Amino acid sequence: STGEEYIAVGDFTAQQVGDLTFKKGEILLVIEKKPDGWWIAKDAKGNEGLVPRTYLEPYS
């Protein structure tokens, strides 16, 4: 699937089932941008889950 690459600007630990845990500096592939501010993203290992958009910045 296609998506946009974003870099994590902080650590995030999953708070509920379906969230994706990530560390600062990780590159995430954003698959869907939901209007509530929680985006669906995939990490380098292929894990998929919800992430808070405030922790992400476009990666170029």
Score class of each variant (00 low, 15 high):
28 L>T: 01
21 T>H: 08
21 T>M: 06
41 A>F: 02
28 L>I: 07
59 Y>K: 11
10 G>A: 05
39 W>V: 14
45 K>E: 08
58 P>L: 10
53 R>E: 15
49 G>F: 02
1 S>G: 03
14 A>L: 04
20 L>I: 13
18 G>C: 04
13 T>F: 04
37 G>P: 08
1 S>A: 07
58 P>S: 09
33 K>G: 03
21 T>V: 10
35 P>T: 10
13 T>N: 05
22 F>N: 00
8 A>T: 08
60 S>H: 05
13 T>W: 02
51 V>L: 08
22 F>I: 09
41 A>L: 08
46 G>Q: 10
22 F>C: 12
21 T>C: 07
44 A>P: 13
17 V>S: 09
19 D>P: 11
12 F>W: 11
52 P>M: 15
55 Y>G: 13
4 E>Y: 06
47 N>P: 01
44 A>C: 05
37 G>H: 09
30 V>H: 00
56 L>I: 12
48 E>P: 12
26 E>D: 09
31 I>A: 08
13 T>L: 04
45 K>L: 06
53 R>D: 15
33 K>Y: 03
19 D>K: 14
44 A>T: 06
37 G>N: 07
25 G>W: 02
47 N>Q: 08
47 N>K: 10
35 P>G: 10
47 N>T: 11
39 W>N: 02
34 K>N: 11
13 T>V: 03
59 Y>P: 15
49 G>V: 02
38 W>M: 15
41 A>M: 13
57 E>N: 03
57 E>F: 01
54 T>D: 15
22 F>H: 02
37 G>A: 15
52 P>S: 15
6 Y>H: 07
38 W>G: 15
48 E>A: 03
15 Q>M: 04
20 L>A: 02
42 K>F: 05
51 V>N: 00
5 E>V: 01
43 D>I: 01
27 I>N: 05
41 A>I: 07
18 G>L: 08
9 V>K: 05
8 A>N: 00
40 I>G: 07
1 S>R: 05
52 P>K: 15
1 S>L: 06
36 D>S: 12
57 E>C: 02
28 L>A: 03
24 K>R: 09
43 D>A: 05
60 S>W: 08
11 D>Y: 03
18 G>P: 13
53 R>L: 05
32 E>T: 10
47 N>H: 09
53 R>K: 15
7 I>H: 05
17 V>P: 11
16 Q>C: 04
11 D>L: 02
17 V>M: 08
39 W>E: 00
55 Y>R: 14
19 D>W: 14
37 G>S: 10
